[in-house]
């Protein structure tokens, strides 16, 4: 297949699009919005995962010990904890250390002194990867530890991490379903646009086939139109997602400041953007392929 035939077909496709700038722009925008929706949702979920990743290392369980717990019991507990799956660190905080820590962070040194003795218990601080367990199992694990004779109370901030993880998994599934449906929608939008183009150019198609145009020759400009509009729609969708995230970064900064952390949103990496553009070009191509298949066949009876 000669290159100049393809170039001619591409020029043909471009000029056909250029003759109807408004309808071309509308098609591209409709496609872009349809594509931006699931992509935006995926990106939000990816960002939440990143956030979760940064929090999961800080997630810890504090097991406060009875004041009269025997050293043997404490030792046994430490062993059990260390051997538990998902535990990444166990740190023993003696009552004295807890007091020292407390005094360092609060100004209430004098108040505590008046108590005469150290009111704080010793504790184990267990660092656990919350994502190793489903939420219910995590709950069981913590209450199991709480029942240990050496333990007075257990305190954890892990539940919500696991719950968030479950919600994210749900969100990802939902985004996938949405993406499949909207991809189908994109194909239909493209197919319908190309169908209209074919109808408008019926005379040209008939004359071309009379003077010996092959099926491939006739459909090529339409396929290029689909490919091109799809690719541009992908670029616009990328722009929409980036703009939306840029707009969201301000509020996110304020929220992070409240939590004393910093979190910057990542819209789409250049690689993801390239994949987005290629995928939507393929969707456009597929839509026109379907339209061309259905509406050119009778020309070649």
């Amino acid at each position: 297949m000669n290159l100049h035939i393809r170039i001619e077909a591409a020029r043909n496709a471009l000029s056909a699009l250029g003759r109807q700038p408004i309808s071309t722009a509308m098609t591209i925008l409709a496609l872009a919005i349809v594509i931006a929706l699931p992509v935006g949702l995926f990106t939000v979920l990816t960002n939440m995962e990143n956030l979760l990743g940064s929090w999961r290392n800080q997630a810890q369980i504090s097991l406060f010990l009875h004041k009269d717990a025997s050293p043997q019991a404490i030792n046994r507990l430490q062993h059990t904890l260390a051997k538990t799956e998902g535990v990444v660190g166990v740190r023993y905080v003696s009552a004295d250390a807890a007091l020292a820590e407390f005094q360092k962070h609060s100004g209430m040194v004098a108040a505590i002194r008046t108590l005469g003795e150290n009111p704080l218990p010793a504790s184990f601080v267990v660092q656990l990867d919350p994502l190793r367990y489903p939420p219910s199992a995590l709950q069981q694990l913590i209450s199991h530890w709480a029942q240990d004779p050496a333990v007075a109370t257990a305190q954890s901030d892990l539940h919500w991490v696991a719950r968030l993880q479950a919600i994210l998994a749900l969100g990802q599934r939902a985004a996938l379903i949405l993406a499949v449906l909207l991809a189908l929608g994109a194909v239909l939008v493209m197919g319908n646009t190309i169908r209209l183009h074919i109808a408008q150019r019926r005379d040209e198609i008939d004359v071309a086939s009379l003077v010996g145009a092959t099926r491939a020759f006739i459909r090529r400009p339409f396929l290029y139109q689909g490919l091109l509009q799809g690719a541009v729609a992908g670029l616009v969708a990328w722009g929409i997602v980036v703009a939306a995230f840029y707009w969201l970064q301000g509020p996110v900064d304020r929220v992070s400041a409240l939590y004393g952390t910093q979190f910057s949103l990542v819209a789409l990496t250049p690689e993801q953007g390239a994949v987005l553009v290629i995928a939507s070009a393929l969707l456009g191509w597929l839509g026109s392929l379907l339209a061309v298949g259905r509406h050119l066949d009778h020309t070649f009876a």
Partner: peptide, 9 residues
Amino acid sequence: LTLQVAGLP
């Protein structure tokens, strides 16, 4: 058109 469908340069 007649020549283009035949792929002439």
